[in-house]
Amino acid sequence: MFKLILSDPSIFKTSFEAISSIVDEVQIEVDSDGLRLNAIDRSHITYVHLELKERLFDVFQCDEPIKLNVDTEELMKVLKRSKSDDVMELTVDGGSLIVTFEGAIKKTFKVKLIDLEYETPESPSIEYPVKITIPIKTLKESIQDIEIVADRVEFNIDQDFLKLKAVGEFSDAEVEYLHGEKVTEDARAIFAIENIKEMLKAEKFADTTYISLGDDMPLTLTLELLNEEGELSFLLAPRIEE
């Protein structure tokens, strides 16, 4: 028996806004603990991990572990048809994922399950010297400030500030955010803004957002739901100076 019911489909929708812009296909794994997926884009620049705990769902029936391979673009088209006050139900029938939204009207979509073309490695664990929290809206606005001058951004964290800096052909920009965390080391790394914007498409997911950084290390952006009921995290490879 496999049936998941979520009274707030926006968690799913906002996760897949980002996931579908990064990867073409994903394997969604569901077992008695919850739902999770790991995926990496074809160029191996961005890794994404989604975890939704069993207790986040209003109904969670999953008698045996199941793997659902889906085309993210197709699933996103369906999720876009949900309204925030709809109740979402996921079931499986034969070779399809059945997605139902029920509000004023009831809509049922059958999304064909696919064969995956490649395997996704397990989530890497990286030790970071620096970790801060930042409201995701603040991060988004800062990136919007930076992107008017350049297509890459330097993240620089010291004991007081997160600074985002860019040097453009015609203009330079710098945004400073007083992070208020205990930071004992400095960290600096450069990233492509295009990739950061893909991750920020999930902005509505988050209650709390963490940035982990080290010198020329990947950026880890973690969006966490209240009571750790869910987590969406991204790992973005840096650009480095030759």
Partner: peptide, 11 residues
């Protein structure tokens, strides 16, 4: 000069 790295070295 800058270049884009990949995540391969972290797996």
């Amino acid at each position: 000069k800058q270049r884009q790295t990949t995540l391969d070295m972290f797996f």
